[in-house]
Write a protein that binds this DNA or RNA. Structure first.
Length: 498
RNA sequence: GCCGGCGUAGCUCAGUUGGUUAGAGCGCUUGAUUGUGGAUCAAGAGGCCCCCCGUUCGAGCCGGGGCGCUGGUACCA
């Protein structure tokens, strides 16, 4: 009786793990092209490549210990055999800090390096947000000069243009955390003599400012004061500022003027009471002057609403935003938003060495940038597949493979059919692969010293105009050529199709 | 975390007031065509109807709970 009751095996479901994705041919090529365009710019600016391991010790990554602070928050981590905690890197900056601290004696100071690769974050994925994504970073470690920040901004402009974003389609917005801190002082949220007090409230204020473009001034006001309830019914607690304080912060956020100089002038008024704030304004002026001198003034501007999360930034911060509109899946116009960001962090290496080492750098989110470009220029041109040499006589594989070899050494992408099946099946395969040409050499052709070249691209075009099977069979998209002229004729046919 | 929507074939989805053996399109396999891609036609393979409990003579459908996916929001080094 066990016979007729088929034993059901639970089959594994073939799916990409949640938050991850697979990249197929064209996407892989597209990304690696973009990567090399960007790194070429980084290299030209004098930055050295650095490739570090994907795995770091949790200790080196710092702060985000699993099970301790927040279980399962952020990093993919596991315990090694010796019980040491390991984790996949969540960005490229923390590994840089580790490498710099570790190799300080061998590395030049300032050390300029770029790094590219995937990073992993163990958090809830959203639309367009994955748990593995590619970053492309450049940092200067060991220089406190605003010139280092200005250089990064200029380089970011060049990198975006090399990646295919046209001038005018992006904008670098620059701010300075010192100015923000100056405002905090003025509002009374920061006491320079006790910098640790009120950190939480300042965090709430920073996050509120960061949401200006999405929520608008009124939403930010609500978050600075009592709090805000959004459409989904979720309530976000505010910073609890009073009306006067709120207006001071909003005055800062909206301090942007026609020119950089005017904006700096306005900021100077706002943070007059704070020496740190004034220092920040002076840095912004220096950066603006340096960018101007290099001819970047139209592509970068000072914008007091830039915050860059909270995190470790201590000085200038910058963000690259795309300014063109795209039509999303719902048919609505929207801005694409930020594709890169960075800033100055002065304390990253201190964790390792106890020394104060300033650094500044930028990170480009490659996946977002790729998505933006795809939206902008529409669907990528269809990829052309390899020339297919069909197999007519199973015992003449060497003949077919010789043709393939000839084509390949002439630089033409080609392959012999390796599956099983008749001619119809082989041509279907060629069709699916977008092969431009199929080559047929049966016994008759062999004896006559010729081969058939089938122009698949032309045939596909003709198919659109054809009604009946007879017409289809009669279509002229196939020619006979002498065997010894194979390479030339295939090349010519591909050229006609393109 | 919080709020909402949805779970039926590989994919996109139908499925009547609860009623026999659960359907379609696409995709896949085979054939009409033993040497020619499209279109057409025919046949075939492929289902824990998310899971558990309950109601019922009877549940894909009704009730409760769970899980998963998804949209928004929060967090994001």
């Amino acid at each position: 009786m066990a016979k007729n009751k088929k034993q059901k095996v639970r089959r594994p479901s073939a799916e990409t793990p949640k938050g991850f994705r697979d990249y197929f041919g064209a996407e892989v090529a597209e990304r690696s092209e973009m990567l090399s365009a960007i790194t070429e710019v980084y290299h030209r600016y004098g930055f050295d490549a650095l490739e570090t391991s994907a795995v770091e010790t949790v200790e080196a990554l710092g702060k985000f210990l699993p099970d301790v602070d927040r279980p399962n928050a952020g990093v993919f981590a596991w315990q090694d055999e010796d019980e040491a905690w390991m984790a996949l890197r969540y960005d490229l900056t923390a590994p840089l800090a580790r490498v710099y601290a570790q190799n300080q004696q061998f590395l030049p100071t300032p050390y300029r390096r770029y790094a590219v690769g995937p990073v992993w974050r163990n958090e809830k994925p959203g639309p367009g947000r994955y748990r593995q994504f590619y970053q492309c970073d450049a940092d200067t470690v060991g220089s406190a000069s605003p010139a280092a920040d200005a250089e990064i901004c200029a380089m970011l402009c060049d990198a975006l243009e090399a990646a295919g974003i046209e001038r005018g389609d992006y904008l670098i917005r620059i701010n300075n955390r010192k100015v923000l801190n100056g405002v905090m002082e003025v509002v009374g949220l920061l006491n320079p003599d006790a910098p640790d007090e009120g950190e939480e409230a300042r965090g709430v204020v920073l996050r509120a400012i960061d949401k200006l473009d999405r929520l608008g001034p009124d939403g930010v006001r609500a978050l600075l004061g009592e709090g805000r309830k959004d459409e989904s019914g979720d309530y976000t607690k505010g910073a609890g500022l009073n009306a006067d304080q709120t207006e001071i912060v909003m005055g800062f956020v909206e301090a942007e003027r026609e020119t950089g100089a005017a904006t700096c002038g306005r900021l100077r008024e706002l943070v007059e009471a704070s020496p740190a704030g004034l220092e920040g304004v002076a840095e912004l002026e220096t950066i603006a002057a340096l960018l101007d001198a290099q001819g970047y003034s139209g592509r970068a501007k000072i914008d007091p609403s830039v915050v860059r999360g909270l995190g470790y930034y201590t000085g200038p911060v910058y963000e690259a935003e795309l300014t063109f509109e795209i039509i999303d899946e719902k048919g609505q116009k929207r801005q694409f938003g930020s594709v890169a960001g960075g800033g100055r962090y002065d304390d990253l290496v201190m964790r390792f060495t106890g020394q104060h080492v300033p650094g500044t750098g930028v990170s480009i989110g490659l996946d977002r940038l790729l998505a933006a470009l795809r939206e902008k220029r529409g669907k990528a041109a269809e990829q052309v597949g390899p020339v297919l040499v069909t197999v007519m006589d199973k015992d003449r594989l060497p003949d077919y493979q010789t043709m393939v070899a000839e084509l390949r050494s002439a630089g033409i992408r080609a392959e012999m059919f390796l599956g099983g099946g008749n001619m119809a099946k082989q041509l279907k395969y060629a069709d699916k692969r977008s092969s431009p040409v199929a080559i047929i050499e049966g016994g008759n052709e062999k004896d006559a010293g010729i081969v058939q070249l089938k122009d698949l691209a032309l045939g596909a075009r003709l198919a659109a105009e054809i009604e009946t099977n007879e017409q289809w069979k009669a279509q002229p998209a196939q020619i006979e050529v002498p065997r010894e002229r194979l390479v030339e004729e295939v090349r010519a046919m591909i050229a006609r199709a393109g």
